[in-house]
């Protein structure tokens, strides 16, 4: 096994002269940043709900009746998404990195399995409900806004929806790869 001992010595010969200087106050601030970053998605979704509902309640009675089903459905689907985001944050916090690697891998696998369920079942359903609710509002928009504004709403939303679908389709195989790898090992 002499060759492995050579490899080991080569490996341990790697030294890192540019070791970053330790700044404990930066470390503390990075910790609070990380906590804050996790809340970005739920906050954005929450603001969107607030905008949708404010828009709805500012409408005159006639428009309110026409818009209410679609907008409430859109808000409800976003609200469900927020609940899953919060669940995801709580579960990630529960992943204890000080556990033995086998136990950690087991809890990570469980977590990813549920995420898989969310990716394949919940998210597509939520997105479909949101898009269908939006489509149901298009005739109302067509009658009540200018043609230019209508075209803007139609095309910008189409681009956003397609973008979101592409992002989802790309992110799923990454998680599946690790999940399958871990399944093989456990």
């Amino acid at each position: 096994m002499k060759s492995f001992e050579d490899l080991k010595s080569n490996w341990q010969g790697q030294k890192f002269e540019n070791k970053p200087t330790l700044d404990l106050s930066k470390l503390e601030s990075k910790l609070s940043h990380l906590k804050r970053d996790q809340l970005i998605a739920p906050v954005i979704l929450g603001i969107t709900i607030a905008i949708l509902l404010t828009f709805l309640f500012l409408q005159p009675k006639a428009s309110f009746e026409l818009l209410k089903n679609g907008l409430i459905l859109m808000s409800a689907s976003l609200f469900i998404r927020i609940l899953f985001e919060i669940w995801s944050i709580l579960e990630t916090t529960k992943l204890n990195p000080t556990l033995e690697v086998n136990k950690f891998a087991l809890s990570l696998t469980k977590f990813i399995k549920t995420r898989k369920l969310i990716h394949f079942m919940v998210t597509p359903i939520i997105m479909a409900i949101y898009i269908l609710a939006f489509i149901s509002l298009l005739p109302v928009f067509k009658l009540n806004v200018s043609d230019g504004m209508y075209q803007y709403i139609l095309w910008s939303s189409t681009i956003v929806f397609i973008g979101l679908i592409i992002i989802k389709v790309i992110s799923i195989p990454k998680e599946l790869k690790l999940l399958n790898e871990m399944h093989d090992e456990l």
Binding site: L95, T98, V101, I112, K174, E175, L178
Partner: peptide, 19 residues
């Protein structure tokens, strides 16, 4: 031992987001 556990688990978690 505790530090290496954290290191390996962090790398494992990182794999989830990398390819």
């Amino acid at each position: 031992t505790w530090i290496f556990r954290i290191a390996i688990n962090t790398c494992l978690l990182y794999l989830r987001d990398s390819k």
